[in-house]
Write a protein that binds this DNA or RNA. Structure first.
Lengths: 234, 234
DNA sequence: TTGACTCGCTTTGTATACATTTATTATACA
DNA sequence: TGTATAATAAATGTATACAAAGCGAGTCAA
């Protein structure tokens, strides 16, 4: 039981970070969290060190653990690197997937589609994360998997709003994402690497178009700024 | 001082694993190592969890930490993935390197060349590792960097013998590797991404040819097997 | 008012003692 | 002799107590 607590704590912290319930940069109180999870500081700190190495947080000497930040320079790299990593993973997943993994992926996809239908945006984000992580496992490539996991941390955090559609267009996008997942499952099941790559890149483009709105918000119209600041201008 | 001990412990464990002084799969005694590094089990265990997440070791519930193994299936993936990761990193290093990083890289290369000259194979391996890790840092890509670090763990462990030349041909190979490093530095300094990629792939091929001898030893001649087993055959 | 300093509080880091689990050995029995 | 089981030893996991470092409020002097 005690062991389960530690694993559960790690999993829950990951989820809270991915949901941005623990915001990027916010710092984590050892005693508070230890109490919250019903464990002492010792095992919690072990979890911290592990999550730090996984890229969820960083630990600063004598000043505790903080949730990994998402600075803009890195986000640029994110958009640049995602197609390479995602498509490589997709190809190898189609080549190497096992039947059991495929069955699990289908289950996740069902749960994911259901979460979007019930409008649970946070849960949708986490299940979408799980979906892509499972494809990563199928690739059986520990090297690229490490890169993928780090990409997904930022991708899921950025995409929090994706599954909370505000308009009919947003809803259509979510629906399309689900269909793309289904197509990807088919390509992986049929062991068609190049098709899996194509579908993955299409899926990425859908996601990217949405994400970029948050990463590069249109700069405020120049006159608005100047109007606002004019009174205080020298 | 106490903090330095922990960092030093982590760095030393990494080095010992890379040198195969701690062999793949061997298990790590908490009390022994804690005594060895002059710290208690608590901080050592934190280091273990961190190194586990970095891919140096794995931790099994209630049965301690073991050095990460190098199984053949994964090694196949290693050979398949290395060109992609290494060349992507090289390109981005050429694009994004800073002057300070370049200076540090040159220092490492000097130390590396010196270690090969003095015949210190273990140190050569570690400095070669540091050289490629520094190129990874230059790329400023945390996602691919995670993949690179995992590749280098296996690459350095596999290549232990590379810098302990047994023949004039081996020595020529080491010499060539050093020259390739110099050429890579030039390409990165001159910010020539495509040249950096070419040189990196050449460097990889040199390394690969040598590594494959250890990974895929020639299978026993078929008649030797049949001769040996014939007496016991049905 | 500002800047530097001290004191005390809060938080982080480490060691140690204890609980729990696994591994090993000894012993009994078939 | 081989196997199963009990007893014991060794280790891993956790909690707690204590040490050390950081942080902030308040004080005092310039």
């Amino acid at each position: 039981m005690a062991k389960l607590k530690k694993a559960k704590c790690a999993a829950d912290l990951r989820a809270r970070i991915l949901r941005q319930e623990l915001a990027p940069g916010c710092d984590l109180d050892e005693v508070r969290l230890a109490a919250e999870y019903g464990i002492s500081r010792t095992p919690l700190r072990e979890v911290f060190h592990r999550l730090a190495a996984e890229g969820f947080m960083r630990i600063e000497e004598n000043r505790g653990a903080k949730v990994a930040s998402m600075d803009l320079p890195v986000l640029r790299v994110f958009f640049q690197t995602a197609p390479l990593v995602y498509s490589s993973i997709a190809r190898q997943a189609a080549e190497n997937r096992t039947g059991i993994q495929l069955a699990r992926l289908k289950e996740t996809q069902l749960a994911f589609a259901k979460a979007t239908r019930t409008g649970d945006a946070a849960q949708s984000g986490l299940l979408n994360h799980a979906f892509h992580e499972q494809i990563g496992e199928m690739a059986q490539n520990p090297y690229l998997f490490a890169a993928l996991m780090r990409m997904l941390i930022d991708h899921t955090r950025l995409g929090q709003t994706f599954f909370a559609p505000q308009s009919p267009e947003d809803e259509a996008r979510v629906k399309k994402a689900i269909e793309q997942h289904d197509a990807m499952i088919s390509a992986i099941e049929g062991q068609e690497p190049s098709l899996a790559i194509d579908l993955t890149l299409q899926h990425w483009e859908l996601s990217r178009d949405q994400l970029e709105k948050f990463v590069r918000p249109d700069p405020l119209p120049i006159d608005v700024i100047s109007m606002k600041d004019r009174p205080r201008a020298i």
